[in-house]
Each structure stands twice: as C-alpha cells, then as structure tokens.
Design a protein around this nucleic acid. Structure first.
Ligand SMILES: [Mn+2]
Ligand SMILES: [Mn+2]
Ligand SMILES: [Zn+2]
Ligand SMILES: [Zn+2]
Lengths: 159, 159
DNA sequence: CTTATTTTGCAACCACGTTTCATTTTATCA
DNA sequence: TGATAAAATGAAACGTGGTTGCAAAATAAG
C-alpha cells in the first residue's frame, strides 16, 4: 500500500504528532529516545534544569549523550542557558521564536536562594544600553536573587 | 633596644605600610607571601581575575593555597565574585566599604566577547525590584555582554 | 625566644566538560 | 519493504577545578 493510497483517517492520525515530536521536527532533529525524554522533562518542569537534574529525572542515562543532547538543543534553538550566578549550568525551554543560532530570549532569570531553583521571568524590564564608556553593548543578562513564591509561602506557613 | 625607645624617624618608617599590607591589616589577615602576591595582581590589573589567571601570573603556586586565599579574601570582604555568564569564576577587588560578610558592591559587570575580560561597571543603573509575581527580590546582578573599549579600538584600527 | 594559632602544601577525591572512535540507529528512497 | 548514507550513541580516556583532611611550616603576640 503506497502512502498516497492511505485513507484520510490514517493520514490524520499520522499528523497528530506529540508536542515533543513537533518540536524535534520543527528544528529538523532526528527523533531519539533521550531527546524525547529530555524534552518531556523540559515541558513538564517550568523551571530551568541542569544536566544533573536531568540525570536524576531520567534514571542516569549516558552522561556524554545527555551532554551532547543539551548542546544540540541549544545550538538548534530549543533551549537557552539560564544564567543564575551559580556555578551550575542550567537550560530552559526557548520561546517559539528561537531557532538555529538565533536566540531571542530577552528576560531576567530568578534564582531562589532557598530551594536553588531558577525560573525565567518574562515580566522584568531589561536595561537597554548601547554603550558604557567605550564598551559596546550587545546584550544584557539580569539575574534576580531572592526567594521564590513557593518558598515564600512555605516559610510563611511554618511561622 | 625596646621599641618605645626608637627614634621618631624609624617609627614613621614602620608606619609606611604598602597598600597590600594596609589591606591585609584592615581586614585582620595575616601577612603571607601568596596573599601579598595575589593582592598585588588585583591592584595592578583593573579587571576581574580568575584562579587560572592568578596561577599564570604568579608562576603556578600551590593551587589549593590559592583557592583558599581567594575564599578567605571573599569572606573577609576584600574581593567579590564577578558574575559574567561564563563558566569561569572570577573575582574583583571590593570597594573600600566591604567587610566580613557585608559586601556592598552593587554594579554591573561587563564581559567582552572578544578578549574574554570582565570589568566592573560602576556607572550602570541596576533595576530596583522588590517583588516580581510572588518572588521576593533580595539583590540583582546585571551582566553586560559586548566588546570592551580596548578590543573596539583594536578592531577599528585593523579595518 | 617561646608558644598558640593560623596557614601551607600534599595526597586524594569527586564533579564536569570535552574529544575520539567504533557501533548502532535513524531517515530516506528506490 | 529493504538497502544505504548520514547522524547519534556509548565507552574510553583525558583535562580542569573544586573540596576536604592532615601533618609540617610560618606567623603574630608576649
Ligand atoms: Mn530563560
Ligand atoms: Mn565588580
Ligand atoms: Zn525557592
Ligand atoms: Zn575585549
């Protein structure tokens, strides 16, 4: 049976790609087990995740493969680095506008000094600088340090 | 000869402490070879320096001692971390107001994507946030990415 | 100079980042 | 549906940094 002869119903089923497969296809990435698992974690958790977070979440897959998966995702514009001032490198899902070498996530990152989680903050204004005494500004990153809303509530309850 | 009997001229000479010794004394730190060497590098270079920068500048001293020297300086308020978005931890000399566990360096850090140097930028306004949808803000860090004035001139000349 | 305290230097570990290469898997197309 | 080219994986191996414990050396104080 050639695909052009398939009944319409089946064609529609084939087009019902899961969100992760849509993402992979949209960025022309092959579909592999670890890529789907990693993307699932990114979609479930809303915070930025580190490689060790993923290792734990996925039951310790091969660490080199995971490493390369993250670099590939970064390069293809699926995730961006979430700088939070700690020594731990974290990544967060990109907004839909990002693609190969064209990241456009201009937002602050909030780092909770209590639980260590890092979140993307869309609603914070970033200073728009052009140059600072001779320094040509290309982009700015803002890290907001403090206590996240979850931890704030938890602390308030305990008192 | 007891010190109380020394002629005034000698007493004055003794009080002529070098800048590094003044710094050490002001933060009640013992005077050791590596501490003086490290402080000299900080005073000469105006940019933020990493441990590997110091290792090279000082002819590869014991790396654990250097490591502890930097932590001690940070704890006592002589240097602060200069977050620049790279994976390399850098430190910069504190302004005179800092002391044991009371850092007060509120300024942006500029990172040159060309030469990799990181400098403290005193003249940049930091957003003053109190809370962002439930997140209690304690402090903010601003990283300015771009091309430093030196590299800017160098590039302009080559053209 | 003596002594209490601090600092050093070494051994030893661990966490990560990164490359290389043979093997396996994926997508494509006849 | 296979065969095939291209891409991804997993193992090994190496490098860099961060970190602790402990005995020896150095410092500051009296
Ligand atoms: Mn983000
Ligand atoms: Mn600074
Ligand atoms: Zn929290
Ligand atoms: Zn530069």
């Amino acid at each position: 049976m050639r695909s052009s002869e398939k009944p319409e119903v089946l064609l529609h089923l084939e087009e019902m790609l899961s969100p992760v497969r849509q993402l992979l296809k949209a960025h022309s990435l092959r579909r592999t087990a670890i890529r789907e698992q990693v993307l699932n974690v990114f979609l479930q958790r809303k915070e930025a995740v580190s490689q060790s977070d993923l290792e734990q979440a996925l039951g310790h897959p091969d660490r080199i493969t995971l490493y390369r998966t993250l670099r590939t995702f970064e390069e293809k514009g699926l995730v961006h680095r979430a700088i939070d001032g700690t020594d731990k490198l974290k990544f967060a899902l990109c907004s839909s506008g990002c693609s190969h070498h064209k990241h456009q996530d201009q937002h602050a990152h909030g780092h909770c000094e209590h639980c260590g989680r890092t979140i993307c903050m869309e609603g914070v204004w970033l200073p728009e600088l052009q140059s600072v005494d001779g320094f040509q500004v290309k982009s700015t990153f803002l890290i907001v340090q403090g206590v996240c809303s979850d931890c704030g509530k938890r602390i308030a309850t305990k008192k």
